[in-house]
Amino acid sequence: MLIINTFVRTLRFIGAYTVANVQAAMEYRISFWVQIFTMAANDSLWLFFWWTYFHQFPLVHGWQNNDIVVIWAVTACAFGIAMGFFGNSPKLAALIMNGGLDAYLGMPRYVLLHVCVSASDPTAWGDIIFAVGAFLLFLHPDLLHFALYVLMALSGALIFTSFVVIICSLAFFLGNTEGLAQQLLGTLITFSTYPMNIFSGTVRLLLFTVIPAGFISFVPLQLLHQFSWLLLAALFGFTTLIVFVAMGVFHLGLRRYESGNLLGMQG
């Protein structure tokens, strides 16, 4: 009962912030819609490019033509949800460095979540619109498959956010990791949007651990082809794991922050 209550309260909290974020972005109405449209158009352009490419140069080893659409749709939706609802996560490193975390510590809410939902990138909605549109257009899924798709996009979003939080939280220990976080996030997105088939064994290992692109796009792809409870459990298991790791690293760092002994920071 308590868990459900907390869950509902958390959702209301995230909802309130998302509404505020969208309102703030809509203050510049034209800019808001232009950004969404551009992102959707940009994604579509790239996808079109790759779709034609894979038509011209089909790979072997079980890579089907529409697979590129699936991994793009899943990755873009996951990224869109992450940046739309938890869009402030990349700024965590800067907040740690300039003491901006203090304001959140004075609030009666769970700090990490509060930081993440405090801002949103309007282009994220463009990603989501594109992703869902492409998925529906190319794959004509039934309701069950669409529900599965949404579920996997949500788990992907949690993975993206946790990934960013982990790297940004290293700022508690190593100094400004903002640039690093940007680079690695770009890397994660890149690896998520190309067929796993082209990578060697060692790299694939990397893609299921440190750079979890495998769990963002590859596993969902397999699940949509051929559903398996085991695989779904693996996906949820990994997502839960990385979320806990993110929370853990953040809390260790927060403890350090609260001691005031942060690198270069004086009371």
Binding site: R9, F13, A16, Y17, A20, Q23, A24, A103, M107, P108
Partner: peptide, 23 residues
């Protein structure tokens, strides 16, 4: 020096948000 009000929004919206934050 630091602001709690959302820069682009009317204070009314910040108040509503705070109501949600403080339950």
């Amino acid at each position: 020096q630091k602001s709690q009000l959302w820069y682009h929004l009317p204070p009314q919206d910040t108040f509503d948000l705070l109501a949600r934050i403080y339950e």
